[in-house]
């Protein structure tokens, strides 16, 4: 049963094609970022290093998600799906923090 032929024609114009950025350039940035974080790990400046390493990790994850997974060109709905999963984890984190970090409360 083939349905909605008109919409699949539309789709051929929009949904199929992704703009293809320069993947090699993005890959090079990713490798460079990794190198920086490894070096930072060796330096071990207290406090500062950890923050920076995880900032770099978030930037790397963003680059992969936005360009390799093409989330940038997906409908905003997709971001909503993934963000809803992250939001639930946020609730989990907040609810767990008092017990795991400061607890357990045994008298």
């Amino acid at each position: 049963m083939s349905r909605k032929p008109e919409s699949s024609e539309q789709a051929s114009a929009t949904a199929g094609a992704h703009a293809h950025p320069n993947y090699i350039a993005i890959w090079s940035i990713l490798l460079f970022a990794m190198l920086v974080s490894v070096l930072l790990g060796e330096l071990e400046i207290p406090g500062f290093t950890t923050t920076l390493i995880f900032t770099i990790a978030i930037v790397k994850a963003y680059l992969v998600a936005a360009h390799f997974m093409h989330i940038k060109s997906e409908p905003r709905f997709v971001v909503l799906i993934l963000a809803s999963a992250a939001a639930c984890l946020y609730f989990l984190f907040i609810g767990l923090a008092p017990d795991t970090v400061f607890g357990p409360f045994v008298e």
């Binding site: 949904a15 199929g16 999963a85 984890l89």
Partner: peptide
């Protein structure tokens, strides 16, 4: 492109397979 997209296209503008993959990844994220 028609071959790429498979038979069914839909209201959200995402092919069904890709939509399923995003939902799958949402559960993986959790």
């Amino acid at each position: 492109v028609a071959k790429l997209e498979g038979a069914n296209l839909e209201d959200l503008g995402i092919p069904t397979g890709r939509l399923a993959m995003w939902w799958f990844l949402a559960s993986e994220i959790s």
